[in-house]
């Protein structure tokens, strides 16, 4: 049954209203639907991990395609659960250590690929000429120059703010760090504004669902 089926729409509408009822005050209906939602999501995840990952990637190759060494993965995974016993919890460290090793190795590659282009991108020309702009750019060379200067000022001041190796007693250092803090405040303001927009979007989606799919308005 698709969620757009009338029964699915009614269940969705009742669930939405029950969860929104918290706005009025704490109540049992809200708690019931909260637990239902968490339980459904957890159950769905377990089912999906089996059908989408474990069965095709591990169970079928092991049992039907002769790749029997996959059985050792079960042993490695089971070691994690020894953490719940006092006597054998040292065994869980074998699996945890192996996992940490894999993660650390991968993060070496990932860190270089993620941050080196950003360091490279932070070297900007402070005086931009027209031939340095991409074709069709709507920004003037002066505008791009000001943008790049602003970028460099902000990056230097913010990094100065996070420089904790010695006390900021020098006046120039203090002013730069204070500028960095101010720039961070601007960034947090932008993030707060975006967060509000995100939450409004979620509310609007639910209200539209109730109006359009459930009540047939709009």
């Amino acid at each position: 049954m698709e969620w757009s089926h009338p029964v699915g729409v009614w269940v969705g509408a009742i669930g939405t209203l029950a969860l929104f009822s918290l706005i009025y005050r704490e109540n049992r209906l809200y708690r019931l639907f909260e637990h239902l939602f968490i339980g459904l999501a957890a159950g769905y995840t377990i089912k999906a991990v089996w059908t989408e990952t474990l069965r095709p990637q591990w169970w079928v190759p092991m049992t039907s395609e002769g790749r029997w060494p996959w059985v050792f993965a079960l042993f490695g995974g089971a070691l994690f659960y020894t953490i719940f016993t006092r006597k054998y919890n040292w065994m869980s460290r074998i699996s945890i250590g192996a996992l940490l090793g894999f993660a650390a190795g991968q993060s070496f590659q990932a860190t270089a690929n993620v941050y080196i282009p950003q360091i490279r991108g932070s070297f900007k020309a402070l005086w931009v000429t027209r031939d340095m702009l991409p074709p069709g750019s709507l920004v003037t060379p002066l505008g791009q120059s000001l943008n790049n200067i602003l970028f460099v000022v902000i990056i230097v001041s913010v990094m100065t703010y996070f420089f904790f190796s010695f006390e900021h007693r020098n006046k120039a250092l203090m002013t730069t760090a204070r500028t960095g803090r101010l720039m961070l405040m601007f960034a947090f303001g932008a993030i707060f504004g975006s967060t509000v927009m995100a939450r409004m979007a979620l509310l609007i989606d639910r209200v539209w669902f109730l109006m359009n799919k459930w009540l047939g308005i709009g």
Partner: peptide, 10 residues
């Protein structure tokens, strides 16, 4: 971060 680090970067 995973896409950039493990796929796009290389």
């Amino acid at each position: 971060v995973s896409w950039l680090g493990l796929v796009v970067g290389s």
